[in-house]
Simulated scan of single mutants.
Amino acid sequence: MPGSGVFGLGYTGLRILNTLKKENAVLGISKTTQVEGSAILDLGDRNALKDFGNKHEAHKFDASIITFPIHKLENQEQLMETIFNISHNVWLFGSTSIYKRIGSDITEKTPLDPEHDRYGSEQKFLERGGKILRLSGIYGPERNPANWARKGLVKKTKRQLNLIHGDDIAEAVRLLLSYTGNDLPNELILSDGQWHTWHEIFRFLEDHQKIQTLPEEKMDREDSFVDSSLIRKFLPGLQTKDFWGELEKLEELI
């Protein structure tokens, strides 16, 4: 029986699968993506999910990672019951957007927004004994922040941009699953911990003639710096990529 299960093989799930299988047995589960070490399963199909649970309950995963927002599934209760039944430990990816913007920094102690669409399902998940890794904005190959600027999805303001590279997420998961202590908090935040604003990114792109020069705009809402220092206390070996170096690669400047 594989040591870990990765539920959802999207942008982050595939990276996690490829990272974990270098060291341990792992099974990826996806509705459509089929790669080495994966199985096809529609997690929204009640009968298929029941059969999958029955098949694996005798030999549980050491840990499972749910990489997608479970609140979008009509059978989210069945999904949670199944995965917890076949796993000794379960992690769920969340988003730092669920925190209220009430101060200059966001930490695990920052209050959550009960109106957020993930709030209800995440609270039920935590009540079952799961752990949540809340991620900042994910970037990397095929997720280039410069394209968000080019498409007009973001404005040239001094809003703080909190990011984490897809490969860094996979490495953080590897370290979390390798952690031997029993004192990990139920909720952790992951970001690259670097300060950069959209204004700086626009200026960088303008200076390299990657976009036309645009005037600065006023911030339409306040934002905060996502502080990921807590997870680094538990994972002192965690390294995250330099954003500006990665942006140069994505823009083919080096």
Rank of each mutant, 00 (worst) to 15 (best):
A48S: 09
A48H: 13
K31G: 02
G28H: 03
Q76K: 15
A48I: 01
E57A: 12
I29M: 08
E36A: 13
Q76E: 12
L49I: 07
G28E: 03
L41S: 01
E36Y: 13
T82G: 08
L27M: 07
D45F: 05
N47T: 00
V35Y: 05
T32K: 08
H56I: 01
T82P: 04
K50G: 01
M80E: 02
S64H: 00
M80R: 02
F68V: 08
A39G: 06
E74V: 02
F68H: 05
A63Q: 15
I86S: 06
Q76T: 08
A63Y: 10
Q34E: 15
N85P: 08
F68I: 11
Q78G: 05
S64F: 03
I70L: 14
N85R: 14
D45L: 02
D42A: 02
P69S: 00
M80H: 02
D42W: 02
Q78C: 09
N54K: 12
Q76L: 11
K60M: 12
K31R: 15
F61Y: 12
S64P: 09
L43Y: 01
K31M: 05
H71P: 05
E77D: 09
K55D: 13
M80A: 00
I70N: 06
I83V: 10
L41G: 05
A58W: 06
V35L: 12
E74L: 12
I65V: 11
I29Y: 05
L73W: 11
I65R: 02
N85D: 15
A58G: 11
D42K: 00
F84V: 07
G53I: 13
E81G: 04
I40M: 09
F84G: 03
I70T: 07
E81V: 01
S30N: 09
D62V: 13
K55T: 15
I65Q: 03
A63E: 15
G37A: 11
H59R: 12
T32L: 10
G53N: 06
K55P: 05
D62G: 10
Q34V: 12
K31C: 10
T32W: 05
Q34W: 01
A48V: 05
D45A: 11
S87G: 02
N85Q: 15
A39W: 14
F61M: 12
D42S: 02
S87N: 00
L73R: 10
I70F: 08
E36W: 14
K72A: 11
A39V: 15
K50E: 15
N47I: 02
N85C: 10
I70R: 04
Q78S: 00
D45K: 03
L41N: 04
D45S: 11
A58C: 11
T32M: 05
H59C: 14
E81P: 04
S64C: 11
R46D: 06
A63N: 13
F52Q: 09
S30A: 07
H56F: 12
E74F: 10
L41D: 00
R46A: 12
G44L: 03
L27G: 06
K31D: 09
F68K: 01
G44S: 00
E77G: 00
P69R: 01
E77Y: 08
G53F: 10
S38P: 11
S38C: 14
D62E: 15
E81M: 01
T67I: 02
K72D: 13
Q78E: 13
A39R: 07
H59W: 14
L73A: 08
Q34S: 15
N54W: 06
M80K: 04
G37D: 14
E57L: 09
L73Q: 13
P69H: 04
N47L: 10
D51I: 08
